[in-house]
Design a protein around this nucleic acid. Sequence first.
DNA 1: AAGTCGGGGAT
DNA 2: ATCCCAGACTT
Length: 352
Amino acid sequence: MNAFAERLLAWFDRHGRQDLPWQHPRTPYRVWVSEIMLQQTRVETVVPYFQRFMEQFPDVQSLAAAPQDAVLHQWSGLGYYARARNLHRAAQVVVEEHGGVFPAERAGLEQLPGIGRSTAAAIIAQAHDAPEAILDGNAKRVLARHAAIHGWPGSTAVQRELWAEAEARTPATRCADYTQAIMDLGALLCSRSRPACEACPVHVDCGAAQQGLTGTLPSPRPRRDLPTRTRWAACLRAPEGIALIQREQDGIWGGLYSLPEAETAEALEDWVLVQWPGATPAVVDHGLQHSFSHYRLDLRIRPFDLPAGACGIMEGNRVIWYKPGTSRAVGIPAPIQRYLHDDKDPGNGTNR
DNA sequence: AAGTCGGGGAT
DNA sequence: ATCCCAGACTT
């Protein structure tokens, strides 16, 4: 075994994370769900979601048989909802085409929706203790520093270098532990800012440490300024609840239930008054600002009041009348969820 | 190769 | 306010 792996494993035995929820029991199903949840998401954020998810969907069969709304409901607030939709589809493929048994090789896993190279490798290494190199955000940071690789790790050229480093260092034995170890090193010691180099087991031959580059590696993502998109939404208030409409599967918040939207205030009001001629617009609009990774959303919300029974006009499984606590289990975007529970405050409200 | 897709915690 | 996190997928 190479010196890097040996030092890392020795450190892991004393200081590694051995009691994460998906490690006990460490089944392919539980490892898979955890890996999908952990994509672009911190461990501390995932833990409560993982535990609730496992209570409702303890095995791949129960997940495959569940309605999509139930899956998205469990996923609400985690973000990147394509992960949940893909997870659900993949469960159905595993049940229907693989007899409920996960592929035990990387290539087989990569055929499932939502599983790329690194996630497939992580599942193989952790669930089967078989040698596969991973390259998640932690490994990228550790390797970029230790091998002193310049350039943004997201670029194709740098990724190729990093994969080569990852493969060269992955040992043939203790694969599950090594995989966990390099992620733990990245998360616990080799953090983005203020890495604890004095406690690092591979500090002696770390390129970044020797060259004084721990503060500059890995290189940051190229800058890009966020555009702002302004949209209008209706908060239709009926005695039965507030109208939420299911969004298209593609695009932001795909498959979730949210306030009906339009490009302009005029288009929104026209649509509302066609559906509900008795709707009464409120005097004061509400406002909601939310920023995504690639744009800033300025959502202007116009409340309308509806008489009792008006909700019957627009029925169907793509509409719910939301009331906290009593509503059907569907996915709701986090900022909309907050708005619905905080309806009194107009936010950046504008008079008109 | 670049863009899309969430939300939140750390700084 | 900026960065980025146990990335995958589409164009």
